[in-house]
Amino acid sequence: MSFYNLSSTSSGDLAAIAQITRDAGVNLDDCYQCGKCSAGCPLSDEMDLYPRKVIRMLQLGQVSAVLKSRAPWVCATCMTCTARCPQQIDIDSLMLSVRHAAKRAGLRPVREADIFDDLFMAGVRRYGKSNEALLAARFNLSSGHLFQDVLNAPKMAKRGMIGPSLHKVKDRAAMRRLFGRALRTTEGEKGDGI
């Protein structure tokens, strides 16, 4: 049983929660805490807060604990929670919005997930296509997990699954412009739906 000090919730916390739910297209009041999201989540045993509890804490205004949680970073966006929610709450989208808010606040509760996704996007920004071997190598160097999967590399090379050449788009400058504009667009002027 956990206890939360509800009197510590500030209007700033409530504003932060309002932005998260607006970005996610979710109404927290729809959730009556049945727990189906957490029961079906394949990664819940890796989460410090089950999806149900993420929603409950946001309902209670406890945004700072949620922003520090590993849960949205452990989420694999498999969308099982969203598919099964009897209230049609887009929990998957809520997890994404919490992660976006945490990142904006300079938090990264699961370092490896942050490194992997940033490196993935850096590669796409540069080449326009994802080059899996380069991504895996850069991930190992940046994360410090130097020898992860290295024994698979020669096997993959032998099977023609990885090679020395890089896949690229022709118009690489267009990719850089696209990334610049997509990441510059500010919060609060989102389109309709998600």
Partner: peptide, 13 residues
């Protein structure tokens, strides 16, 4: 170009 997959989704909608 790359579809972005979940790495783009966790970066920005």
């Amino acid at each position: 170009c790359c579809c972005g997959t979940s790495a783009a989704l966790v970066t920005s909608r």
